[in-house]
Design a protein around this nucleic acid. Structure first.
Lengths: 208, 208
DNA sequence: GTAGCATCTGAAGAATCCTTCAGTTTTGGA
DNA sequence: TCCAAAACTGAAGGATTCTTCAGATGCTAC
C-alpha cells in the first residue's frame, strides 16, 4: 500500500558460492511452504526449516519476510516477462494470426512450465507490494506486445497499446483457471486452441 | 487447502433486528479494514473496532476469522453471479453480438459497482477457502452462459461449456486491471467497447 | 597455516493474534 | 411492568510470529 520500496529490497549480494546456493534453496523453500501451508502460514521459521537452514540466515539476505516473498515473486514474473519479450522479438513481421499463436503458446508455456510455482505465487501477488510488482512487469510485456503489433504487415491498430493490454489480460483469466483446477494435457491443448481463436479473432477484428 | 467446510460456516442466525445490523456492520468493516490495512493486518480486533463492537460479538456469528472473511467473499461473489444470471436470462434468443454486449456490460457493472469491495476481496479470494469458493461461483455463471449460448439464433457451438468458460475468463483479467490501476470513466468506456469487440469476435468466430 | 571476512546458528525478546467465557446490558413478549 | 432469551463486552490465556544479535563455523587469500 504505502511506499515500501526500499525495505523490500534484498539485503546483500552473495559473495561466496554457498550463499548463492542458500538464496536458491530459500526461493524453492518459499514455493514449497506456500503450496503446502498457504500464504498465512508461510512463516520465516517454516521457510528456513524447509530450506535446511537457520532463521538467522534468512535475515542475512532479506530485511524481512515480505522482502523475501517479493523477491521470489519478482523472479517468477521477470521470467514470464523475459519469455514474452523473446516471443515478441521472434514474431516481428508475422501476420496477426501468427502473432496470436505465438503469444498464446508463449504465455501458456511460461506459466505452465512451473505450474506449482505459478499457483503458489498468486496469493503473494495479491498482497503488499505484489500488486505494484505484477503491474510493473505486465507493463513491460504490454510494451513489447505493443511494439510487436506495429510490425504486423496485415493490420494497423488505432490504439496498439490498448489492444495489447486487452489481448494480454484476456489470457490471464483462462490460464489461471487451468492452474487452479488441475487440467489434463488434453484439455490444455484444446484450451490453447480456443485461446488462439480468441486472440486471432480479436486482433483481426480490431485492425483499423 | 484441507476440508474446512464446516468451520467456515456462520455460527448462528440473527433473531433480533440489531443482530442483523451487527452482521451488516461487520461485513462493511471487513471491507474497510481490508482496503486500509491489507489482508494480513485484517485482524478480528481491528474489524470489531472498526465496526464499533467488541471482539466477542464477532465470535457470536462466526466461529473464526476465516469464516467471517469467507462469508464476506461469498456474499460478494453471489451478488456477481446473481447479476450475471439475470443478464443471461434477459439475453436469451439474441444474436451472439448482443449477447456479448450484455455479458460485458453486466460483468463490468457488477464488478465496478463497488469497486473498492471488489479490489479488497481479491486478496481473500487468493487464500484458504477463497479458491474453492470463487471456483464454485464461477461454475454457476459458466453454466448460465452455457445455457444462454444454446439459445443464440445465429450460432451453434460445438462445445458451449468451453466457449462459455473462455469467454467469461477472458473478461476477468481486463476488468481486474481496471480495478487495480485506477481508471477514468472515459477509459472504462473505451475498454468496455474493446471487450465487446473481443467477445463478439470470439463468439462469431467460434460458431460451428 | 592462519588471519580475517563471509556465513550461519538458534535462543530469546517484543509484539501480535485468535479465541474463550463469565458477567453485563438490551430486547421483546407476557 | 418484568423476566427469560438474545446480544454484547473485554480482559486474559495460549499460541504464533518476526526479528535481532552475540557467538560459532566455514572459506580464501596471502
Amino acid at each position: 500500500m504505502t511506499a515500501l520500496a526500499t525495505p523490500l529490497r534484498p539485503r546483500k549480494q552473495p559473495v561466496q558460492a554457498r550463499s548463492a546456493a542458500t538464496i536458491e534453496a530459500l526461493h524453492t523453500a518459499v514455493i514449497q511452504v506456500l503450496t503446502r501451508e498457504g500464504l498465512s502460514r508461510c512463516t520465516t521459521t517454516r521457510i528456513a526449516e524447509r530450506a535446511g537452514m537457520s532463521v538467522g540466515s534468512v535475515y542475512q539476505y532479506y530485511p524481512n519476510r515480505d522482502a523475501l516473498l517479493a523477491a521470489v515473486l519478482e523472479r517468477h514474473l521477470s521470467g514470464i516477462a523475459d519469455a514474452m519479450e523473446r516471443v515478441c522479438l521472434d514474431s516481428r513481421g508475422l501476420p496477426v494470426a501468427r502473432m496470436a499463436e505465438a503469444l498464446v503458446e508463449g504465455y501458456m508455456a511460461a506459466k505452465l512450465r512451473d505450474a506449482g510455482e505459478s499457483r503458489a505465487l498468486y496469493a503473494v501477488a495479491g498482497e503488499r507490494g505484489g500488486f505494484e510488482l505484477a503491474a510493473r512487469v505486465y507493463k513491460r510485456i504490454e510494451a513489447a506486445v505493443t511494439v510487436l503489433l506495429a510490425t504486423a504487415p496485415d493490420a494497423r491498430f488505432e490504439d496498439p497499446a490498448m489492444t495489447a493490454s486487452i489481448a494480454l489480460n484476456a489470457l490471464v483469466g483462462p490460464v489461471r483457471s487451468i492452474l487452479d483446477g488441475q487440467a489434463t494435457p488434453a484439455f490444455e491443448a484444446r484450451l490453447q486452441g480456443q485461446l488462439v481463436l480468441l486472440l486471432t479473432a480479436y486482433l483481426e477484428a480490431g485492425r483499423a
